[in-house]
């Protein structure tokens, strides 16, 4: 029997008990703070290259209570960490005596739109940079401060702040020009089977989204909602931490947060969600 059929049997078994009510993404509209209508279900961009017929945010795969929790900034516990990052934004650190605000002023204005286009090619550095890399470049090169741990609390809070001010704007990462090579590498990783279970990202998130994996829904694995506050661990989680968890669950040796592999994968996965609204910090299971 082929592997695909094995997986199908597994999903079938899980779906039997869970019942049909749980299978499909929920049709609903996400309106943030009764104000911003978010794009959470849309047509694929050219980057998807026919792999998906529709592009769906992970928000649609969550339960009623969880979806509602994300619709209001007060109900969203992820916003507590955004507020903590607002304090960090104003905090002077390092030998240059600067804070983020010293150069960038109000985050609400200067950071608007930034999350939507990262990861992004940096011409001077000659590399594709994630938001985390750019933040650390600012810290070490502009502020004379120590870099933050890639997926540590300070870093993830700051990415949540920067993401929060772009909510409602469409994800629009560039995949052409000098970023192409990194994107191609990310695509290759997406379709590579890892671990003892020999699963690729695509086996779950492209072939089987909308079905059950044990008692939970499989989403398309979109990252427009990252960083995300997970009910499971009641804290913010970065996209790289989620990648790490996924690859670990295939029973593989995983890559590290901030590794070249995950940077490439982030660019590729982000591009599959081009057109979806930036949602971070979102709420997921």
């Amino acid at each position: 029997m082929t592997r695909t059929k094995t997986i199908a049997a597994f999903f079938g078994a899980a779906a039997m008990i869970a019942g049909p009510a749980f299978a499909e993404p929920v049709e609903d509209t996400l309106i943030l703070n009764e104000e911003i209508e978010m794009v959470t279900w849309t047509d694929p961009s050219p980057a998807v290259d026919g792999a998906l017929s529709e592009v769906i945010s992970g928000w649609h795969f969550r339960g009623d209570e969880t979806r509602a929790m994300q619709a209001d900034d007060f109900d969203n516990p992820g916003m507590m960490f955004v507020e903590q990052a607002r304090d960090a934004w104003e905090t002077v650190e390092g030998t240059a005596g600067k804070s983020c605000a010293s150069c960038h002023g109000e985050a609400d204005d200067s950071m608007k739109g930034v999350r939507a286009v990262y990861p992004k090619w940096n011409e001077t550095a000659g590399e594709v940079r994630t938001l985390e890399m750019q933040i650390n470049a600012c810290r070490t090169e502009q502020m004379g401060a120590e870099p933050w741990k890639y997926a540590g609390k300070d870093m993830i809070n700051m990415t949540a702040l920067i993401s929060s001010v772009s909510r409602g704007m469409p994800v629009n990462v560039a995949i052409d020009g000098p970023a192409r090579e990194t994107w191609e590498k990310g695509k290759e990783i997406y379709y590579t089977r890892f671990g003892q279970l020999e699963l690729s990202c695509a086996n779950c998130h492209e072939d089987n989204y909308g079905r059950m994996i044990r008692a939970d829904h499989l989403s398309q694995g979109q990252i427009n909602g990252f960083p995300t506050y997970r009910l499971k661990n009641t804290k913010l989680n970065s996209a790289h931490s989620r990648f790490k968890g996924c690859i670990r669950d295939t029973r593989a040796e995983t890559f590290a947060e901030g590794s070249p592999e995950f940077i490439a994968l982030e660019l590729y996965v982000a591009s599959r969600g081009n057109g979806l609204s930036v949602e971070g910090p979102s709420i997921r299971n």
């Binding site: 029997m1 592997r3 059929k5 094995t6 049997a9 597994f10 078994a13 899980a14 039997m16 008990i17 003892q196 279970l197 020999e198 044990r214």
Partner: peptide
């Protein structure tokens, strides 16, 4: 991974 009768049973039990 081969889909043996035993594996199916384990998966079923898991579900």
């Amino acid at each position: 991974m081969q889909l043996s009768r035993r594996n199916v049973m384990i998966m079923g039990a898991g579900a």
